[in-house]
Design a binder for these strands. Structure first.
Length: 839
DNA sequence: AGCACGCCGACT
DNA sequence: GTCGGCGTGCTC
């Protein structure tokens, strides 16, 4: 009843709507009101893409966020120029979600839209020129110069030219002046062309022309005629073999993929002749970029514990919107997900499963694909734009009722989500840092599921302390899985003291004796080894042994990482590269040596220590290509590699039975990271890496090299005492006011002028101090990295009281303050960046 | 963000 | 004299 009236009302509203507030991809924090012209009445509504004029000449495409009949007071609304869609690309729920995100993360809704839409749905507008039809060279009062003539001649043969093409034509850089002059002389017209970037994938298909299908006699006559032309005959026979149109004439409609003839080695020119003579015809078929996969609904058998967990989750969902599933590595969370997803789909809901980027290319996806087949969509950052648009459309059309994807898949056009699962909920890659919106996909997913009145399941072996905190205060439900699936035992932990070995001269190429022995043992037994070092490159930096000089990035305040393989030094913040100097530029000494450990160097050390072992490396540098990651994993899985060295990539989704030894070379680096989450992260990372050891028959060994083997964290990791560590860390956080006890907002100022950046940050800090809410402020301080890409950074950290409406008030005031900063001439050019829930 | 308008240096 | 530099102001 209610929904009926709701629909009716909406309908009435849209029929009489005369104005539309359009979300545009511009960094201005509001929507823009345009008039809906009579001709488009009833053709547009929320979520339609429209073309509008913005400014004097620019044509932009935006999305309608609201329709209404309130004429703007201060200005005359311009009309919408055109609608691009016959149905809404974005639904009203998404607009609500975008608005919430813009509000919560203090950014503009246009920025959210930018992040949400796959590039293929954003339209690019490009200025082009065409001949002015009323122009005549003979009668024109204006003389044309040589270059202008060139352009006009080109336009005679080609109806339009882009600016780029004009530049190429004349071979000069600034074409603007010439074009302007031609416009003044009324010789050409400049227009904006909007082009849809999405191009459907097409296949050329061949089929018989209709007469031959309807009339069997004509086909026979044809064969008689062609007996003298064996090549053409061959083609027709091939076709009939694949498409038996005698028995099933209807098959001719779909025809046959053209490539089949080429693959069979048949003459393409004969095929052309047949088409030319009207025997065969060629047509284009729009096909999906995704292969059809039949799900086999394989029966998943669950352990008693898994069944119990499912029941607990379901009953907990009765009263709680969010549930935390805390299951140690290898406890079989995937099966539980499958069961819950199946049930949600069966009840007619959509389901979203979020995975961290690097886990998506692995076994879990192929596993799910086997169960769900092609009703499952995959949304991955390595997919092309076109592939993403197809997933987007597939969600709208209902083809995909279930999507597995990375953080940006929360933006897909779901309209009836029933369940969102966030796997590896603690993963920091769920947080987007650059560019804005700086959102956390887990937190946004909880909001999204709330908008859909759906449920959220957070899964992790090592939950984020926030989520665990929320579970403990009963805001979230909490379900635990305690046993490893198939009763695989937890690995044995060994802590190896780097300093002791160093003193005894037992440290060889950064490997302690214990580490070397265990690796050798595994190699002797034909078992596999994982070595974890969360630092790519050869070494963090090189240094001059004589004067201590360290090469630094020209644009950022960091040392350059030494990459031996490519023989260069690279900045991991801006991508700056430099050749390695032969001698120290500071003192001329030739003694430059690598300091510290990176994956490349470890790979090299391993091949020196274990010359017989097959070694591979997995980090950002070896997995750049679309399938790089998969290839390395497959190699490892097939047993072609004995030792795999890698960054945190190896902690995800690797599920190989033959790994018995896991080595962590420099645990201290994880432990002493300068941020309040260091302990939590260290616990998570070590536990996750350790979870890769010994999954089935044999108990694995985890060797941790450290200079501080007595650190209390090791003890708790070894015992698997998550709660103990949590409680200890929480006490610290409460004492020093860190989340989850406060809300953090980081406000930074960036500018190429050091002094100005600092001054702006001071000023901003003072303005923020005046906001009347309970809070603590730190800073302004030079950022941890003081300069990135030639921009100096100063930061203020605000710790807000979580109770009451301190957050809302502060964000509101923040907006006002930002405007005042922007209105201030002095600080206009300073970039101010707001990061809500940083880290 | 673009892009226009507007006021000061080095070029045919 | 002009072409072109980038400061600053606005976009429904």
């Amino acid at each position: 009843m209610e929904s009926l009236f709701g629909d009716l009302f909406d309908d009435l509203e849209s029929k009489s709507a005369r104005f539309a507030d359009v979300i545009l991809p511009v960094p201005i924090p509001k929507m823009f009101t345009y008039k809906i012209p009579k001709s488009l009445e009833g053709e547009v509504g929320i979520g339609f893409r429209v073309m509008v004029q913005f400014g004097s000449k620019k044509v932009l495409t935006g999305i309608i966020g609201k329709v209404h009949q309130k004429p703007p007071k201060e200005y005359e609304a311009k009309p919408i120029l055109d609608v691009l869609d016959s149905y809404a690309m974005v639904n009203p729920l998404q607009i609500k979600f975008w608005s919430w995100m813009a509000e919560y993360y203090c950014c503009h809704i246009g920025e959210v839209m930018n992040a949400a839409l796959p590039a293929g749905l954003k339209l690019s507008s490009e200025s082009k020129i065409q001949l002015n039809p009323t122009f005549d060279t003979e009668t024109s009062p204006y003389p044309l110069d040589e270059r202008e003539e060139v352009i006009l001649q080109a336009l005679a043969s080609k109806s339009e030219l882009s600016y780029d093409e004009c530049e190429q034509l004349l071979g000069i850089k600034s074409i603007h002046g010439i074009i302007k002059s031609l416009v003044i002389k009324e010789a050409i017209i400049v227009f904006e062309q909007v082009k849809d970037k999405y191009t459907p994938k097409v296949e050329s298909r061949i089929r018989f022309s209709q007469p031959f299908v309807e009339d069997r006699k004509s086909l026979e006559t044809l064969f008689d005629e062609l007996s003298a032309k064996p090549k053409q005959e061959e083609i027709l026979l091939k076709y009939l073999q694949e498409v038996p149109i005698y028995q099933r004439p209807e098959l001719n409609v779909k025809g046959l993929d053209k490539r089949i003839f080429a693959d069979a080695g048949l003459s393409m020119s004969s095929l052309k002749t047949l088409i030319k003579n009207g025997v065969l015809e060629e047509y284009k078929l729009i096909i999906s970029r995704f292969e059809e996969i039949q799900g086999n609904d394989e029966e998943v058998t669950l352990s008693e514990e898994q069944n119990r967990a499912i029941e607990e989750i379901k009953s907990s969902f009765q009263e709680k919107q969010v549930n935390l599933l805390h299951g140690i590595t290898g406890s079989g969370k995937t099966e539980i997900y499958i069961k819950l997803i199946e049930e949600a789909i069966a009840s007619g809901s959509q389901v979203l499963l979020l995975l961290p980027e690097i886990a998506l290319t692995t076994q879990i996806v192929s596993r799910l694909q086997k169960v769900f087949g092609s009703k499952m969509g995959i949304y991955h950052s390595k997919f092309s734009d076109n592939e993403r648009v197809e997933v987007w459309n597939g969600v709208i059309s209902g083809k995909f009722s279930f999507v597995v994807g990375v953080r940006s898949s929360i933006f897909l056009p779901f309209d009836s989500l029933g369940l969102i699962i966030v796997d590896e909920e603690h993963e920091s890659s769920y947080k987007q840092f650059e560019p804005s919106p700086r959102f956390h996909a887990r937190d946004a997913a909880i909001m999204l599921s709330w908008l859909h009145q759906a449920k959220t399941l957070l899964g992790s072996a090592t939950p984020s302390f926030e989520s665990y905190f929320n579970a403990r205060i009963k805001k979230y439900g909490y379900v635990q899985l305690l046993n490893r699936y198939g009763d695989a035992s937890l690995p044995e932990f060994l802590i190896s003291d780097i300093l002791v070995d160093k003193k005894k001269q037992l440290l060889k190429l950064d490997f302690t004796r214990l580490m070397r022995e265990k690796i050798q043992e595994a190699l002797n037994n034909q078992e596999q080894v994982l070595i974890f070092q969360n630092r790519r490159g050869y070494a963090p930096y090189i240094s001059c042994e004589d004067c201590g000089w360290i090469p630094e990035c020209e644009h950022c305040d960091v040392s350059l990482t030494y990459h031996q393989y490519s023989e260069e030094m690279r900045c991991h913040y801006c991508g700056f590269k430099e050749k390695i100097p032969k001698v120290c530029p500071a003192c001329g000494s030739g003694k430059l040596s690598a300091v510290g450990l990176g994956t490349e160097r470890i790979e090299e050390s391993l091949s020196l220590l274990f010359p017989e072992a097959r070694i591979a490396r997995m980090d950002l540098d070896t997995t750049r290509s679309k399938y790089g990651y998969q290839r390395i994993l497959e190699d490892f899985g097939a047993g072609n590699v004995d030792v795999l060295v890698g960054t945190q990539m190896i902690t995800k989704g690797l599920d190989f039975d033959r790994v018995t030894v896991v080595g962590i070379l420099d645990a201290d680096r994880i432990l002493y990271f300068p941020d309040f989450r260091a302990g939590e992260r260290a616990f998570q990372q070590i536990t996750q890496v350790a979870g890769r050891a010994g999954r089935r028959e044999k108990r694995g060994v985890v060797i941790i090299q450290s200079r501080k083997p007595d650190h209390f964290l090791f003890d708790q990791v070894i015992k698997g005492d998550y709660k103990g560590f949590y409680l200890q860390d929480m006490a610290e956080r409460q004492k020093f006011f860190y989340p989850p006890f406060v809300k953090l907002i980081k406000v930074s100022c960036r500018h190429k002028d050091y002094k100005l950046a600092e001054k702006a940050a001071r000023h901003l800090h003072n303005l923020l101090l005046e906001v009347q809410v309970k809070k603590i402020m730190l800073g302004p301080e030079k950022g941890l990295i003081g300069k990135i890409k030639n921009q100096y950074i100063f930061e203020t950290l605000v710790k807000l009281d979580k109770s009451g409406n301190a957050q809302a008030i502060f964000k509101h005031e923040l907006r006002r303050i930002l405007e005042s900063m922007y209105a201030n001439k002095e600080f206009r050019s300073v970039r101010i960046i707001i990061d809500v829930d940083p880290y």
